[in-house]
Amino acid sequence: MNAAADSTAAFPWATIMAAGFGLLRLSTRDFWAMTPREICSAFGPPPRDAGPSRPVLELMMQQFPDGPTMNKEQE
C-alpha cells in the first residue's frame, strides 16, 4: 500500500482542469500529456508577498468600511 492510497482528500481535478484549459489554454492532448509536476510548474511558484501593503490596506479600509457589528441580541 502506498501513501497516496491512505489520503482522504480528493485530488482537485475540476480546479486543475479549469486552470489548464481556461487559464493556460492547453489543448486536451497537451493537458493530459503533462505530469503533475509539470502542471504545478506551469503555474509558477506562489507569490512571496500576496497581500496588499499597509498604505493600500488602509486606503481600502477607508473606501470600504465594515458595517456595524452585530451583538448577540441582534442575531
Rank of each mutant, 00 (worst) to 15 (best):
D49P: 00
D66Q: 08
D49V: 11
R37E: 13
V56P: 00
L23E: 13
T28W: 10
G67M: 04
G67D: 10
A33H: 07
A10L: 09
K72G: 00
T28Y: 09
A42D: 06
S41A: 15
A42W: 01
S27M: 01
A4H: 13
W32K: 09
F64W: 13
P12N: 04
R29Q: 13
L59Q: 15
S53R: 03
R48M: 13
A5P: 00
M1Y: 11
A3S: 12
A18R: 14
D49A: 12
P52K: 08
I16V: 15
D49Y: 10
S53D: 08
P55G: 01
A4T: 15
D66R: 10
L59D: 15
R29N: 08
S7C: 04
G20T: 00
N2Q: 07
P12H: 01
G67V: 03
A19V: 10
T69E: 11
A50I: 08
T28K: 10
M60D: 13
E38L: 07
L57C: 04
V56L: 07
A14S: 10
I16W: 05
P65Q: 05
T35P: 02
S27T: 13
P52Q: 03
R29P: 01
F64S: 03
T35K: 12
P36E: 06
E38R: 15
P55S: 08
L23R: 14
R48H: 10
A18G: 10
P47W: 08
A9D: 06
V56G: 01
G51Y: 00
Q62Y: 05
R29I: 12
A19L: 13
G51Q: 05
Q74I: 10
L57P: 02
T15D: 00
F43K: 12
T15N: 00
M17G: 00
